[in-house]
Design a binder for these strands. Structure first.
Length: 270
DNA sequence: TATCAGGCCCTAG
DNA sequence: CTAGGGCCTGAT
């Protein structure tokens, strides 16, 4: 077990922010996360966090996953004090981190996310994992399921994932899986591309438009300049940034600001 | 019953 | 290039 005191890190906020659909609260102060094939439990009281894993796994995997080296305090410090809306949003969600998640998993998750709500996205992802993921054992000896590979999902017929409640998104996932599995899309290459190039490449995938591509860029590739615009963000932009979001000022950290706004719009009281 | 949820595809004009 | 209809499904 690893114990750390961490500023600007709040599991509840990260969990609810909807970047990760396989993180959940399992007790008052305790959360579980499944990332790719890895399982972790974390306990948090105020700033003190207990990661239930070996030090090596923490250093090599979870520290990166949670972006614990990122300086979120500095980002918040960059916010225009006259922008009271963003100041409030950032104060409200100041424990959010932009996770570094597995690329393939994010592609599928955000293909599913369209015209969908967070709780149903979670169920869809869980269904896919339980049906097609690798069965594994957590630290308590309980079973959990890893995220299925593209090769496995590429074997399915286009409508097969309707059984996992994907609805019309089923063919998006299956066709994309085929594209990745046959080598038409090279995820290794995508992961080394700069933002604009990666975004363009991701948008070639069937079912992926600007919003989905930006979510993947932000939550998997850690391109912090990506600013996904969904219905909530669109509304916020209309009511608070009629002359457009100040991209210049927040160059390279728009994605972090997007998360503060998104989280505030969904969970802040207004 | 109608509308909406972290959109995108496809077809017309 | 832009506009608009269609799409699975569950919650309200």
């Amino acid at each position: 077990m690893i114990v750390k005191k961490i500023e600007h890190f709040n599991l509840e906020q990260i969990c609810k922010s909807g970047q990760c659909f396989r993180m959940k609260q399992i007790a008052d102060t305790r959360y579980s996360v499944i990332a790719g094939q890895e399982y972790l439990e974390v306990e948090q009281r105020e700033k003190e966090c207990r990661f239930y894993c070996e030090e090596e796994t923490f250093e090599n995997f979870w520290k990166l996953y949670f972006d614990l080296e990122g300086d979120y305090h500095a980002c918040i410090g960059q916010i225009d004090p006259k922008d009271t809306y963003l100041m409030q949003a950032a104060a409200f969600g100041d424990g959010i981190r932009i996770l570094k998640q597995e690329l393939w998993e994010m592609i599928v998750s955000f293909l599913i996310s369209q015209q969908n709500n967070i709780s149903r996205i979670r169920k869809c992802v869980q269904n896919i994992c339980e049906n097609y993921g690798e069965k594994r054992m957590n630290l308590h000896g309980e079973t959990y399921y890893g995220f299925p590979t593209a090769a496995v999902l590429a074997e399915l017929a286009e409508d097969d994932l309707k059984a996992c409640n994907l609805g019309y998104r089923s063919k998006y996932v299956v066709r994309t899986a085929k594209s990745v599995a046959c080598g038409e899309t090279n995820l290794e290459a995508v992961s080394t591309m700069p933002y604009d190039e990666a975004r363009k490449e991701l948008m070639k995938l069937y079912g992926a438009g600007e919003k989905v591509a930006d979510c993947v860029c932000l939550f998997a590739l850690h391109h912090l300049q990506a600013f996904p615009v969904d219905t909530h963000i669109s509304q916020a932009l209309q009511s608070h940034y009629k002359r457009g979001f100040p991209n210049r000022r927040y160059e390279g950290m728009q994605g972090i600001m997007q998360q503060y706004i998104f989280y505030y719009e969904l969970f802040g009281e207004k």
